[in-house]
Write a protein that binds this DNA or RNA. Structure first.
Lengths: 357, 357
DNA sequence: ATGAAAGCGCTAACAG
DNA sequence: CTGTTAGCGCTTTCAT
């Protein structure tokens, strides 16, 4: 068993030079003779020298590490976003410190403090809550910590952010239902906590505007009275059942998250309402499971990987170009409609996007 | 804008004490008067002092960080595993450095070297390949680096590992098909690369043994001749089509990964073979999408979160109890059969496990 | 109860 | 081309 890891000075000693020389040899810069360089390199290799990046970070005051805090990984949505981040980070030789906040603002703050104490160079976060941490983030920005929000943002906090253009996404959903001739349209509301986020609010706004533009009556909102702790699926299932039970009708339904759409589909099936014959259903996110629901779910696709990659690039840009001059930017990536079979019209099972249409 | 972050000595200065005293005040140990302690704490708080964990790590020779390398996050499987790791890590005040190897052994090694250079205290990895990195891992273990494999292991490498009991999982699948009266059973092979992993080999072994125990003819293996770069779904789809086209029959099918099962289901549907009427299909993993396939997929459930959590605990145990004495252990977590509707027999759509059955 | 000093491993400024 | 020295921020002797 080899002993504790070797330091530069061990290598230097073994090669019979000073640590500075050893450093220059391995870093490959500064004046150094070919010969010494090769000799030192060889010794380092032979001994299995592994530079101590902690020491380097202390000295350099940078860690080449990005901190990432997300709600959770259990929906394919954020897993893809993190992959996008990882891609960009690896390409630029950055590492990623990851933690899940489980949507709890206070926990998020605790995690951010930990990452910051570990001196990450920048932060990418899917912010939980709405106003709880706003002042905290503003303070971070004043300290010139590079922060990029992903998927959601906090109004009034001037950090960079990358989201899907949720207003547009909602609009596409609404227009699609309207153009299919649907007139009695309902919308399944998310939980109060999730519904307070910018992304979900914007989806609903865009949706409402589309109906208005198309001269369709505003959508009735379902499920606002349900308990907070239900799963998305169960929440939607109950909301739709309640609606149907009170003898109300619907020929179009928009769920602002795919998870809700799944529950709605289930309720509709249980109630004997044909989808898409009697009711057209549109979801939002385009999670992996959408291709497998009954019937396959027409939904609004978010470019998940791209969200992560763009957020990472935003942070790295600030790191590389210097923080000061750059104004914060809010980037909205373009969503598109994926037509499957839950709305009628797109009956062949092939995925079709707005562009093809 | 506040200036660059404060050090302990800044706090000390502001409080009119030595850095040693400031340290004792904040660390809350060593002899210190109540008064000084409170005073220093107050100053630190007021100034927004954030300890530099990099410096602490350099000094302490530990980082309170776990390194995690996985194939990818894009199937729900590994996303759940990472969540399990994160849970345990957070509970013990550890952070997680995450990177994706995309199944490439050499990239995996490069990432591990990076994490090690960053001086993570331990490693959790889903090892890519079979023998490519075996010597590398053995060397790491000799250097007393705590390594735990998750989901798969490398034969001959004596690291801790946590996997589903894949032999048992395969066995459950085989027995289920046999007990349903299926006799012409086929097995969809994974790609050569994935098929070389311990987990997939063991699934196939367990499956074969079950058929044998039940007196059912050995399964014909489909798709071994397909190109390497197909998606799982497409691979299975083609394999099944080819089988059917050559006028062979099958009344039972086992796919060693859910992704393959999805493609098989698709091919069967395209060919007009009723599932589960004419053919029973069993998958493996119990990914999120299984509940949504046509028909919902009966599959072998792996305790994903638990795999991650257990691997994390294994590494932490070595960290806390000291490395030396502990022999490596291979942990096999119990899988179970989840009966949905792709096999017949479980027709109510409710999820039923072996235990309930 | 408090402080001075050294050192973790690296890098850069400054000689020579 | 090479070496000496100092210091990143923290913790830990070892005094006082």
């Amino acid at each position: 068993m080899k002993e504790a890891s070797l330091s530069l000075s061990d290598i230097a000693k073994a090669a019979g030079v000073s640590t500075t020389t050893a450093h220059r040899a391995l870093a490959g810069k500064g004046r150094i003779s070919r010969a010494t360089r090769r000799r030192v390199s060889k010794v380092a290799e032979r001994l299995g020298y592994r530079p101590n990046l902690i020491a380097r970070s202390l000295r350099a005051r940078r860690t080449a590490t990005l901190g990432v805090v997300v709600d959770a990984l259990d929906s394919s949505f954020y897993a893809h976003v993190v992959e996008g981040i990882d891609d960009v980070a690896q390409a630029q030789e950055y590492a990623v410190l990851l933690a899940c906040s489980h949507g709890v603002p206070e926990r998020e703050r605790r995690l951010l403090e930990l990452l910051l104490a570990k001196r990450v160079d920048g932060l990418i976060v899917q912010p939980a809550g709405t106003t709880e941490n706003a002042a905290y983030y503003t303070a971070l920005l004043e300290q010139a910590v590079p922060v990029a929000f992903a998927d959601r943002y906090l109004p009034g906090v001037h950090a960079d952010s990358v989201c899907t253009d949720n207003v547009l996404g909602g609009y596409l959903a609404g227009r699609h239902l309207a153009q299919l001739g649907r007139r009695a349209i309902v919308l399944v509301a998310p939980s109060a906590r999730e519904g307070a986020t910018t992304s979900l609010r914007e989806r609903m706004q865009g949706f409402a505007r589309a109906l208005e533009d198309q001269g369709v009556p505003a959508a009735r909102v379902l499920g606002t009275d349900l308990p907070a702790d239900l799963s998305r699926q169960e929440r939607a299932r109950r909301a739709v059942h309640a609606h149907l039970a009170s003898n109300k009708t619907a020929d179009g339904l928009f769920a602002v998250q795919d998870g809700l759409a799944v529950g709605a589909l289930q309720a509709l099936r249980e109630a004997g309402a044909k989808v898409p014959g009697a009711v057209s259903v549109v979801g939002f996110d385009d999670e992996d499971l959408c291709a497998y629901t009954h019937p396959p779910l027409t939904t609004i696709h978010q470019p998940m990987r791209e969200i992560g990659a763009t957020a990472a690039r935003l942070v790295l840009r600030r790191l590389q170009e210097g923080y000061a001059g750059l104004p914060s930017q809010r980037i909205g990536l373009e969503p598109h409609l994926v037509v499957r079979q839950s709305c009628g019209g797109g009956s062949d099972g092939h995925r079709r996007t707005e562009r093809d249409a």
